[in-house]
Amino acid sequence: MRKLRTFENIILDLSRYWQKKGCLLYYPYNSEVGAGTFNPATFIRVLDNKPWKICYVEICKRPRDGRYAENPLRFQQFYQLQVVMQPAPTNIQRFFLESLECIGFKLKEHEVRFVEGDWDAPTLGAWGLGWEVWLDGLEITQFTYFQQAGGLDLKEIPVELSYGLERIAMLLQGVKSAFDLKWNNTLTWGDVHRQNEIEFSEYNFLAADARLLVSLFNQYEAEAVRLFEKGLILPGYDHTIKCSHIFNVLEARGGISISERAKMIARVRALATQAAQLYKQKMSEQNVLKEGAKQ
């Protein structure tokens, strides 16, 4: 019998694989994000147009996807393994497929399908082209060549791979529910997360105080703007991320109209775009200074 791959070992194996490909091993961001892309290690770094290789686990929160721990494949919090390589190596698709082999999928015994999926993060002013990668029909990874971030065209095109770790583990362990995944040899994913899912589902859908959230959104937005004005771009971006998460909770809570929703997305996007532009500006000014110092 094949050795059972625990959730934690899958993460370790993938991390080691990408470490060998030259990626820096990094960690999740310390504030709620909807995807690994929000992490400054991706969003800010791809703006540098410089070589950058990184791999990290991200804890992703998608309030609308909570199902009170009742749906085997839907939860309001899950884990992504994020890989960014800038510039994208020419054999990146093969690297990716071999990473699947390294965690135990024999390509000869599965179907890996690259399904056209244009990726667009409206709140980040970012978009790219690529695929949803389906393994035996199950979406396990988003594979994207970024074209723009923060509304800025990228020159060194980065590739972003976002592995959906639960789904991958479910296929590997042959279980029908993420809650049954073996995290290690004694505990399951459900043991770790069930209560969290139930309580947060109730919070996101019913208990969240919409008024408070709207007020927090406004305050964080104002704070981000204030910080940008002071030239504190990374703290400003940090508050942008907070706005984005609050918006997600509000959307789950219901009661945002179509036009309000569009407006809030536009507001977060404006912040993210501003962060990106200011960052670019600051970096080029610093480069000028550095050049000057050398001379």
Partner: peptide, 27 residues
Amino acid sequence: CVFSARKKALQNVKKGYTLVVGSKLYD
């Protein structure tokens, strides 16, 4: 389900699609 892999993959493909379609229909 028409798929694009080796015939050997058939059992895994069947399992995968059972799971994913089941979950979508559940939703």
